[in-house]
Design a protein around this nucleic acid. Structure first.
Lengths: 232, 232
DNA sequence: GTTGCGCGTAAAAATGTCGTAAAAAATCGC
DNA sequence: GCGATTTTTTACGACATTTTTACGCGCAAC
């Protein structure tokens, strides 16, 4: 079973710290992907399989807690928080949102490596767990493997398409407002850009609906948002 | 809170594995029915209500895929596949036939339990309590899902119609003045535009009243406003 | 009776929203 | 840097909703 390098994503704006973390991780035998901003990080995380995310809470372009929540919507991968904030409240919020561990700056390379080892070990032990398969009609979605099939054929989705799909099937039957979808997928500053949704919902219908012009699963609530309908 | 035990049917020929699965399921609080062969399994499934079927694909007396297809012909219950076969093809075929999840042997008790939990949780969510539903007459209003049904049929409401409806059912029996309704829905500068209300209350009556000309729920208080009457 | 007012209904007009295709720009992997 | 993929932007016709307009009814006051 091919002992591949664990994929680790580092989301951190300060180049020095990023470098520091990268070196520590590579010493642990990890493959490292870097991102300087939250939006970047979410995109990178969505592109391929990631075993661990090392996340700085104090990023300039948004709240790290939001990142965790969004990430947890479609991934079970481990999350390790870095932060200068020592307040208990902050720590609790992050862990509640789904973070697995929390490290306060400044920290030593030894501690960082030990915690990363622990998280990866825990992950590999429960590897294979929690690969929930969602389905509707002839469509099957394997969240952890990022795999979507339709009638046996694999359907290729781009990262944004996949995130939109997972958001919608996570709330079956409910109407998701445009603002909510936009905030979750593109970030809080995009809540007005509803044309993105029209384009991407269009893509999903094109790829997943029997008759894209007469959608049965991805329904429009004009003026409000979209609703995902699992069955007929 | 009549929380009955979920009924789970285990179709598996090897006694050891069957025992292993039974223990895991009972630890999850399930009632377990066992079957050693496919024919048996189908019969058992047909005898009573079953929430989840745990099915071994490699049974001696027939193809598990056929079981799924047959089962799907008359039941929406969840299906979790156990199998020694690791091939992607096999997995896709099973999922396409209507299975909900797939677990490859050997597997740990933790993983099995987690997947069972996930499947049962999903079912119960789909079965759909958990969202407050208001009702009057043959009309049901699901605020969370933003869904209105009348005698089982879905009724489509436009955004303004929906807001007006929610405003009124939020204050059952009370008279809501025109100015108040207008201010809440259209904004404070529209408090004089009472003709809007006539139009939209008309729409609601049209869509939700048995006899729109003789309203029993959306009553007019001439000169004052409107009153919502839940019961008769 | 007829006049005026508030109400209900229908339908036309105006406005806003949505869906789609396709071009332009950004990004990634090499 | 180059080609392929993905995201963003743009434009426009189709459609849905909201707003406006018009007209008929009932009722109370005069």
């Amino acid at each position: 079973m091919s002992e591949e390098k664990p994929q680790v994503l580092v989301v951190e704006d300060e180049v020095n710290i990023r470098q520091f973390v990268r070196l520590a991780l590579e010493a642990e035998g990890c493959a490292v992907i870097e991102a300087g901003r939250l939006a970047d990080g979410l995109r990178r995380a969505g592109e391929g399989h990631v075993d661990l995310v090392v996340l700085d809470l104090g990023l300039p372009d948004g709240d790290g807690i939001e990142f965790i929540r969004s990430y947890r919507g479609w991934s079970e991968g481990a999350v390790l928080i870095l932060s200068a904030r020592v307040e208990e409240r902050q720590k609790i919020d992050a862990l509640d949102a789904g973070a697995d561990d929390y490290l306060t700056k400044p920290f030593g390379v030894g501690e960082l490596r030990a915690r990363v080892r622990a998280l990866l070990r825990r992950r590999s032990r429960q590897a294979g767990e929690a690969s929930p398969v969602l389905g509707f009609g002839e469509i099957k979605v394997d969240l952890a493997r990022r795999l979507v099939t339709r009638g046996g054929e694999e359907v290729h989705l781009t990262p944004i398409e996949f995130r939109l799909l997972t958001m919608m099937i996570a709330h079956p039957g409910q109407v998701l407002t445009q603002r909510k979808l936009l905030a979750e997928i593109w970030g809080p500053s995009y809540v007005e850009s509803s044309h993105y949704l029209r384009v991407y919902v269009g893509h999903l219908r094109q790829k997943l609906e029997d008759d894209p012009a007469q959608p049965r699963h991805f329904l429009t609530e004009t003026g409000i948002g979209y609703r995902f309908q699992p069955g007929p």
